[in-house]
Design a protein around this nucleic acid. Sequence first.
DNA 1: CGGTGCCTTGCAAACGAGTGCATGCTCAGG
DNA 2: CCTGAGCATGCACTCGTTTGCAAGGCACCG
Lengths: 358, 358
Amino acid sequence: MTVRPPAGRLPAPAPTLPAVPPRPTLRDVATAAGVHPATASRALNEATRSLVRPATVARVREVAAALGYQVNPIARSLKTSRSETVGVLVPDLTNPLFPPIVRGIEDTLADSGYTVLTANTDNDPERAASNFAVLQARQVDGFIIASALLDDPLMHEAAERGVPMVLVNRATEHLDVSMVAGDDATGIARTVDHLVSLGHRDIAHIAGPLSVSTGAVRLRAFRAAMHSHGLRDDRIVVAEAYSEAAGRDALVDLLEEEAPTAVVAGNDLLAIGCYDALEEQGLSCPDDISIVGFNDMPFISRLRPPLTSVRVPQYELGVEAARLLLDRLSGRTVTPRVVLLPVTLVVRGSTAPPPSGR
Amino acid sequence: MTVRPPAGRLPAPAPTLPAVPPRPTLRDVATAAGVHPATASRALNEATRSLVRPATVARVREVAAALGYQVNPIARSLKTSRSETVGVLVPDLTNPLFPPIVRGIEDTLADSGYTVLTANTDNDPERAASNFAVLQARQVDGFIIASALLDDPLMHEAAERGVPMVLVNRATEHLDVSMVAGDDATGIARTVDHLVSLGHRDIAHIAGPLSVSTGAVRLRAFRAAMHSHGLRDDRIVVAEAYSEAAGRDALVDLLEEEAPTAVVAGNDLLAIGCYDALEEQGLSCPDDISIVGFNDMPFISRLRPPLTSVRVPQYELGVEAARLLLDRLSGRTVTPRVVLLPVTLVVRGSTAPPPSGR
DNA sequence: CGGTGCCTTGCAAACGAGTGCATGCTCAGG
DNA sequence: CCTGAGCATGCACTCGTTTGCAAGGCACCG
């Protein structure tokens, strides 16, 4: 006659590796504390604790601690259909702009017990959609999106379906969701002011891709700023991407006509590309041409020459985005908010008065 | 008389937001296809598909596609106690060394349907332990750890409990788990060779923290290399951290005695700190002192002067670590493997022959 | 002294999917 | 024509929690 294992517990498979001691379950805690699992659940749960007699709460908690009990978030999620997890969509983690933002997000969400799932879109709408779907399948409670396009069907669709989300750094047109970014317009205005005060009058702009809000906003701000100084506002090249190569190409284009005395680059990567183009052509920054970047990426101050740039509080961007999402998830706030964080122009060695005679 | 909803389906709560259409469940698919949920499950599942008649499989799959069915990974995880999720522990995502590694990991794991949860330890064992616990509670199937210490009880404990894990970049002593890193020893040897061939004889080393394997390994390699050239191998300062500030302090210390003609820094951040110290003292690199870094971080070639450094294939490190973990998780490989990826010395402007007369 | 109501706890039904076992069917072989 | 093998499918239970409902106990009040 064979001995049958007690119903409900399968015999442990032959342990090939050092047996992982099975984690205690809520039932184990309940049994050990002499209560029903339901009671244990309530005692352990912050919100429902008041339903249980204090003495019982104490007993259950002690037992739980003694057994090293931890809730199984999977089981909980299945029941509550919330995962305490949020998805973060980033164009490319390898772009130095984003790690500080992501850390701001992670640090803030971690304090509220949330965990972050990140995915890279590489600026490809298809990859964005597929990653978005994967994260949704994983039941994330909400999204923080740093990869939005100006015209982004995916974002509209998600917003319409009521998916809790917050955009960071990049906005989408006609979309009524919360968003946090640096004050790009002011940053560009300060930049132009700075160059003009140095004596520059022939200033060009290398715009980021206009499919991205930062590209479009900074371009518009550039035009407005130049206009307000009574200067030509049409020396503009639109870069194909926020990359060094695109920045180089753009400046090469500009130099084919008459060279400007200063260039406002759409971001730091484009500015670095400008450095490359100048070096190729045997020109010097800032002696021949002044260059200004945007974002003040980590280590950008250590370039040759140190890049004048607009400092965007990247970490705080992440923190604020996370806060907005938490507000939304807790149901406190429903109405979308747009937060613009202040930026500051950091003047370094890449800007100087124009060559004499210009 | 009140109408009772059919058992098992609660009435939808009054929708305040645009109602999110409830995702179809396996049961919905089964009903629509006219089969039992169990059959639908088997039809949809790669491994069990062969149990179902091909015609039925086709019908179920069609219906599933039409309904836009996606498995609920939460429910599946609860049943299978695997989450298709892995935890990645990193010292600090903001350190430019790590984003490429993380991307390598994410890209590789994504191909196998895994999702990544990252956490930052800030080199704090306590934070490491707490994050490790959080990720374990989330039922991650395994870990990839870039934050291991040379003497790391947490790693030992986890390994003993049989937690599937792979170390990347940093190793732990006496630990029998898979690990992938750059070939540090060879990298340092090439560095010393290069400096010696330039004519340097008085070469110092700024070691990273000896609590981390890279610090210890590179130090040992430095000693060995110097010894093999018949040179003094005791001009060494150990930095407190892999940071710019620590690098600066270390070089200041060195300069208080007789200045070496070249410095091998434990990594690029320490090398950048050396630049700071030189600037403070009015010294020039490479004219007065040559500096070499390690890792070849992104953008490090654009410093002033461009830093000679040892290129470590960071992305591939991540890819390889992910592969090793996948092998382990699939049960194909059980025996730990140590993979050292080849590194190359990239010579740039920060190294030159020593000042004449030295 | 009985009734009423709260406070505390237990019961049981979910959440969505996977899986051992039983069952029913088809088909082949005797 | 009957039996047995084997394939296809269904049944029912389970994973670990949460939660609406019910029931028990106690105290208080009339």
